[in-house]
C-alpha cells in the first residue's frame, strides 16, 4: 500500500523537491529494489504531500444534505480532503442524521451513510447516529449493524446538538446495545463555545461517564474533540481501559498532544479530523509535529483505530 501510494501520488514531487535530504537519498538507494522507507510523517506535512504512513480518520462527516435519496454531495468533498492528505479510511457519520428534525430525515441520513460505505468499501466506514429523542427508530436502525457482511461500525452520539442527558434513558439504551455487541461509540460531549451535554443531576460529565463505563464495560467510548477539556479527559481515559480520546479540534493549546500521550498513553488516542467540517491538514499536522516519536504517531494515526474498528474494517474489505 505504501509503495503504491507513493508511486501514484508523490514520488516525482518528493524526489524533485527533496533530493538533497537524507530521507530522499535513502529512498533513492532503495528505489531499485525492495520497499522504499516511509518518509517520517513530519516530512510529509512539511512538504504538504499525502502521508506515506497509513491514516485512519475516526471522526469524519458528510457536510451536505440529502437530495432525493441520493448520496449527500459532501462525499466527494470528503474524498478530496482525504486524498489531499493521504487519509486511507474515514469513519464518518452523516451530519443530516444528526440534525434531522424528524424520524424520516433521521432514517434517511443514516441510510445514506450505509449506502455510502457500501459503495466505497475500504475507504468509508459509517457510524450510525443514535438520536436519543428517537430511541425506537435508533434501535431499529442499530439492527443493521448486526446484519452479516459490511455494516456500520458503531454509534455517533451528539449530546450537545441533541441536548439530552448523558445518563438519560435514551442514551442508556445506546450504551446497552454497544455493550452487548462490543461496539465503539463516538460521543461529542462538549462544544468549543462551552455548551456541554447535560447530566440528570448536574454532576460533572467525567463522573457520570465513569459510572456509565463501569456499567457498560463492553462499549468502547471515544471522547470526541479531546472532550474540549483535554487534561480532565486524559486522566479519565487513563482510568478506563475502554475509553479513548479523539483529536479533532479547531485550536489546541501548545504541546497538548505530548501531555495527553504522557497521561493517557499513545494507545488510547485516535486521530480524528472532523472533516469536512474542519480542514484535515490542520488536524493531521497536530499529530505529525508532536514530540512523541514516530511509533506513537503511527499508533494514533492508524493502529489504535485498527484495534477499535478492526472487525468492521475487515468486513468492509471482505
Amino acid at each position: 500500500m505504501t509503495m503504491e501510494k507513493r508511486l501514484m501520488l508523490t514520488r516525482r514531487q518528493f524526489v524533485s523537491q527533496s533530493i538533497t535530504s537524507g530521507t530522499a537519498l535513502a529512498w533513492a538507494r532503495n528505489a531499485s529494489g525492495g520497499d522504499p522507507p516511509e518518509r517520517p510523517v513530519t516530512q510529509a506535512i512539511r512538504d504538504g504531500e499525502p502521508f506515506d504512513a497509513e491514516v485512519i480518520d475516526a471522526h469524519a462527516h458528510f457536510s451536505g444534505f440529502l437530495e432525493g435519496g441520493k448520496l449527500p454531495p459532501g462525499v466527494k468533498t470528503l474524498f478530496r480532503a482525504m486524498d489531499r492528505c493521504g487519509i486511507n479510511l474515514s469513519v464518518f457519520s452523516n451530519s443530516s442524521a444528526i440534525g434531522a428534525p424528524d424520524v424520516e430525515g433521521f432514517r434517511a441520513g443514516n441510510e445514506a451513510a450505509i449506502a455510502a460505505m457500501k459503495k466505497y468499501p475500504g475507504r468509508l466506514l459509517a457510524y450510525l447516529v443514535f438520536q436519543p429523542h428517537f430511541v425506537d427508530a435508533s434501535l431499529a436502525m442499530a439492527e443493521r449493524i448486526l446484519e452479516p457482511g459490511p455494516g456500520p461500525a458503531g454509534f455517533k452520539l451528539h449530546g450537545v446538538a441533541h441536548h439530552y442527558p448523558v445518563d438519560g434513558e435514551g442514551y442508556r439504551r445506546a450504551y446497552q446495545f454497544a455493550h452487548e455487541h462490543k461496539l465503539p461509540v463516538l460521543f461529542h460531549v462538549k462544544s468549543s463555545h462551552g455548551a456541554e451535554t447535560p447530566t440528570l443531576r448536574n454532576e460533572p460529565l467525567p463522573v457520570v461517564l465513569s459510572r456509565v463505563l463501569s456499567e457498560f464495560s463492553g462499549m468502547r467510548l471515544i471522547i470526541a474533540h479531546y472532550g474540549r477539556g483535554i487534561d480532565d479527559w486524559a486522566g479519565f481515559t487513563a482510568n478506563h481501559p475502554n475509553a479513548f480520546m479523539e483529536t479533532a479540534a479547531s485550536g489546541v493549546p501548545f504541546r497538548v498532544l505530548e501531555r495527553t500521550v504522557a497521561t493517557a498513553g499513545p494507545g488510547r488516542i485516535l486521530f480524528g479530523s472532523d472533516s469536512t467540517y474542519l480542514s484535515p491538514g490542520a488536524q493531521l499536522a497536530k499529530i505529525a509535529f508532536a514530540d512523541i516519536g514516530e511509533e506513537a504517531k503511527k499508533q494514533i494515526l492508524a493502529s489504535n483505530a485498527r484495534r477499535v474498528f478492526g472487525k468492521s474494517i475487515a468486513a468492509s474489505k471482505a
Binding site: 506535512i45 485550536g251 489546541v252 493549546p253 501548545f254 490542520a282 499536522a285
Partner: peptide, 24 residues
C-alpha cells in the same frame, strides 16, 4: 501565538491548502 497555542494547525492548514505556491 506560541507558547499558548499549537502552531501546527495553521501550518498544516496552509501546507495542504488548495492554493498556488506563490500564494502560500
Amino acid at each position: 501565538q506560541m507558547p499558548y497555542w499549537d502552531p501546527s494547525l495553521p501550518i498544516g492548514m496552509l501546507n495542504y491548502a488548495d492554493l498556488a505556491n506563490e500564494q502560500k
